[in-house]
Amino acid sequence: MSSEPTKRRRVARHWHRWLGLFAAVPLLWLSVTGLLLNHIVDLGLNDKRVSAEWILKRYHQLPEGKPVAFKANERLVAGWDGALYLDGKFLEGFEGELVGAVGVKDKLVIATKESVGVFDGSDAMEIELDELSLPALPLQGVAVAENVLLVKSDSGWSSFSDDFLLFEEWNDSAEAVTFNLLNDEELDDLKSAITSSRSMPLDRVIGDAHSGKLFGWPGWLITDLTALGAIILTILGLRLFPKRKS
């Protein structure tokens, strides 16, 4: 029959062995991503970007569901899963649920439920109007009458001045522009344009891979368990360290 210290050593060795096995891959993962993070500038990874589809999906950079599209000033304005696209090009810094798009003189006006963006001929956003410059939110529709921008909200239709800074109640009738359904070919073109135009900074992806966030809550859990495992492995290793008495 084995003595008590021998039995304790055997149990400790058993746990050390199995815990080491399970923690090996996550510990390697943490070590490699940690090293990359620490030397991200030296390795020149800080200005690299990744556009792998699964990574873009993890960061919600690829839209889900069906797009809503409007044609205005011979341009295709699409709203898809909260992001906005002009002829398939992502509109950075302007997002929301698309309500409509109209051409007002030489400007393209894109309205979401929360804001209105006015774009000039070179696709630069001239001005963005938010709750500070709109009659009421959410916006329900957009239209043009007599070369004037009209927006519809709970308070009815409002017309805007030429510089879009002032608005007043519009008492005449108006009809909001309606969206166009895209055919399969247009939808495929839009999808490929969106995928090719999106990417994520590599250093952020590595950072999120290190913390486990890249993989959602299971990633967090595995990172936490690995950290706990490393602590337990250290304790068990220290207990096993003294030489066995002969």
Binding site: H14, W15, W18, H60, K213, F215, G216, W217, P218, I222
Partner: peptide
């Protein structure tokens, strides 16, 4: 020791399955 090994294997299987199947995200 056999019971502990079986429990460890089950635990590992559970977390690996959860890791592979779950699509949770925390980027918003």
């Amino acid at each position: 020791t056999l019971e502990l090994a079986t429990a460890s294997k089950k635990l590992c299987f559970f977390f690996m399955t959860a890791f592979l199947l779950c699509g949770g995200s925390a980027f918003s």
